[in-house]
Amino acid sequence: MTDKPLEAKQRPARQWLWIGLALILFATIVVLLFGTEDTIDVEAAKIPPSPPIISVITVAPGTVQAQVSAYAKVRPRWDAELRSAVSGRITTVHNAALAGAQVERGDLLFSIESAPYQSAVAAAEMELEQAKLALLRAQNNVTVAQRQFDRDEKEPPNELAVNLPQLRIAEKTVATAEARLNAARNELADAEVVAPFSGYVMHRFASLGQTVAPGDALIHLSDDRQFELVAEFSQADWALLNHPISGTMASLTQRSGEPFGKAQVRRGGGFLDQDTRQVRVFLDVTAPNERILAGDFLQVKIPGRRIAETLTLPESALTRAGYTWLVGDDDHLQRISANILFRREGKIIIPAPEGLGPWRVAIAPLESFLPGQRVTPQFDEG
């Protein structure tokens, strides 16, 4: 009976012992964990990040010939609505006047009733003959009067005595009659409407049997032999050209990049476009071929002056913010503002920075670049 109370006393003591051991073990684990975390942080902080690897190219300053380019619309030199010069009924609409027809210069388009104009020509011819007859009479009167004074060995007192004023009136009457006859013949000729230049009939306005008056539209004719371009350049591009530019040959390129032909600068500059505030250059297409179409857009490239101390870089070297990144001899980044002189075949041409070249240029700069940042340059072989 005496052992049971002793066992009951020892049981709570063992429980407290195990609880104490468990608390000590937990505290030891917590201390070890905190100590390990601090050690990891310290070791990570001691390892510096490696410089990023970037692709660079080596570029030396050089002299390039400037080239400016712009897109321009092909326009026919002659493009007009042909209008009637006389009044009357249209008696014939020729095939050349139908929409879409290709006509040659001098092709007959419309015939307008010509009887009134034939009558006017006949009347003018009669008037001219009468004026010529009056002139002959006046000349004869002058001759007779002058001979009379010569026989009498006297000087005529005035021009009226020898009929000179009548002679001058007769001469002017003949000139007036001739002018009227020419006008009548021109009106008769205008009754037959012909193409003033070669081209395509874009639209026909008049129909058979229609009565037209002077100024009424007949057809819209567009030239198919002579073409011109009007290109617009900024004042900065204009400064890159050799002046004067009249007579300069420009190359034409299709939007696909295929060479198209040549154009000659007829005139450029002198004024700014009121809407775009750019300089306009007028060009004539030389030796146009059958591929050229009015209304098409072609790229006009005009050679300019030679510029020294420039860098030619790929367009990928330019950031969206307009900067270019250089890598110094100590592999640190240097940012410069790229003043683009012009673009050519996927390249940008900028003034060379101050200092001795060549320079190492990052060809694919990142937005995260910072001035003075250390990098690991890797030369691009392409």
Results as ranks from 00 to 15, higher is better:
R14H: 06
L17Y: 10
W18G: 08
I19C: 05
G20D: 00
L21E: 11
A22V: 12
A22T: 12
F26T: 02
F26W: 05
L33I: 06
G35N: 07
T36E: 01
I40L: 13
I40T: 10
D41G: 09
E43P: 01
E43G: 04
P48S: 04
P48K: 05
P49S: 11
S50D: 10
P51K: 09
P52N: 02
I53S: 14
I53K: 14
V59C: 06
G62L: 08
S69W: 12
A72Q: 04
K73W: 08
R75A: 12
P76E: 04
P76Q: 06
P76I: 03
E81K: 06
R83D: 00
S84F: 01
S87R: 12
T92K: 10
V93I: 05
A97W: 04
L98V: 09
L98E: 09
L98W: 02
A99E: 15
A101D: 03
Q102D: 09
Q102G: 04
V103W: 09
E104I: 08
G106D: 03
D107N: 14
L109H: 11
E113Y: 15
S114A: 15
Y117T: 02
A120Y: 01
A122M: 13
A123L: 13
E125Y: 13
Q130L: 14
K132V: 04
K132W: 01
L133T: 11
R137D: 07
R137A: 04
N140Y: 00
N141V: 00
